[in-house]
Write a protein that binds this DNA or RNA. Structure first.
Lengths: 150, 150, 150, 150
DNA sequence: TTTT
DNA sequence: TTTT
């Protein structure tokens, strides 16, 4: 069992890449998920310049990746359901870097507001629907780290 | 919302420390959580020497931390319920290192077998009970990173 | 382990009662949670007059109950985190009725919109905050069914 | 979003049926999931003859259903991951009965012990593996209530 | 008995 | 490197 459920806001517009081998779409973004702080603790953290959120990397594949890239933008509120994944790679300095991230099964859009930070997002969306689920589950197969150029 | 649920095996005996300030117990360990691979994919991964599990850091505080340190050992199967947390610290080389880990609310012991790797573990346990829940939730207060010497 | 996470809309304004013994607040409401249907299946269900959502009873205690009663109304979108609970009671006809419901730990408000169906709701709210979490966890103690007059 | 995760023991051997239309396997069983009671509360409940567990209906489809029927029995410990579902039907007395149950995506076996209550279970299992996951997810399609003869 |  |  490996389940993660997050509700948070995108810290930046999502990235979109395509896997070299099969052209499969991959989207990456980070979520700011508010820490569970009391009102007092939150103030204290803010005053001390300490983060009041956790920043968590999300990866999505396939059509869900494309939907994220097309409809989401910095600041948007989403619910992510997925699993924790660890990867490692060699960086430019030859050091092994360890990554823990959430491989999303589905990304649910919780807002279809107009406060859109990225002017180019959210064309042709369904409009009235405020909770559309673009599942990433369709036939997902785990992918070689080596295929992923980032 | 920030929920994580994992079932996996300890990759090593748990560590136990006490916070400088208040003496609060903190335990750290990693869990090997099997990836969701088909039988074929699993074999392929094994042949290529690729990990068939994800390795995830767990932190627990308070009495639950002490219980983990006292009753768990490398290889034990547990269910962890908690939240994802990100931290960063400066390493010896002056580089910022980012950590993603699970802050456990509760660690449920799913085995009370005899295949105990650490001979000193599992004295005075409740014996017949095979699913004891040592909640970490009692009055947990988020803690300054700076208090944590690791 | 017993975890439930739901995102859905209130099917009616929440009810608020107080336990006879200790005066503790209890709120009840139901959530319409969309079934995971393909676009085609959804249309089919609608045409056949079959429900496209599951309707799930929620119970909340304490301050969270009061917050729900004060700030929520029919149609509002919320995220509920809690545990499944079964109860039974004797009805007027002397039959035993079995109830399965979600005992909420926390109810997160995912909307602070203006399409408020209940004109008397959502006074004095925090305004700018669109994701406020009224935790029900504070010292919750399981409660005798017999204390609950419904 | 609609997620349920339970760890509990079967209250009876699982049932197995096949849907009239397509012959798809369906298995039903109930799980006893311990309530989250303090040691004192638990004793009190036991003395008063009140249940210390919640009893939750599980439905599984497809190959996972067959695996449950073949390998599980009363008393076995499992982890279930699924979604809450509500159904209703007319009973013999012409009254509408409402059912809330968990539609399982996967049933993870957490024990392969020898304390097998049903002598006919657990032939040809994988033996050494103590955490086998028979996913129910493969191409599951929501099914008409009317097709289900129970 | 149900929501957008 | 982070969001409202």
């Amino acid at each position: 069992m490996n389940k993660v459920i997050l509700i948070g806001r995108l810290t930046a517009d999502p990235e979109l890449r395509f896997l070299p081998g099969n052209g499969r779409a991959v989207s990456n973004f980070s979520l700011a998920v508010d820490k569970d702080l009391s009102r007092d603790k939150k103030q204290e953290f803010e005053q001390q310049g300490k983060p009041t959120a956790d920043f968590i990397r999300i990866v999505v594949f396939g059509r869900s990746a494309e939907n994220c890239a097309n409809y989401l933008a910095k600041g948007r509120l989403v619910a992510v359901d997925g699993r924790l994944q660890t990867r490692s790679y060699e960086n430019a300095q030859g050091q092994r870097v360890y990554i823990t991230e959430v491989l999303a099964n589905s990304v649910e859009f919780l807002e279809w507001g107009d406060n859109n930070s990225a002017g180019n997002k959210r064309e042709n969306n369904k409009g009235s629907n405020d909770s559309m689920d673009f599942s990433a589950a369709e036939g997902f197969q785990p992918v070689d780290d080596d295929d992923i150029p980032f």
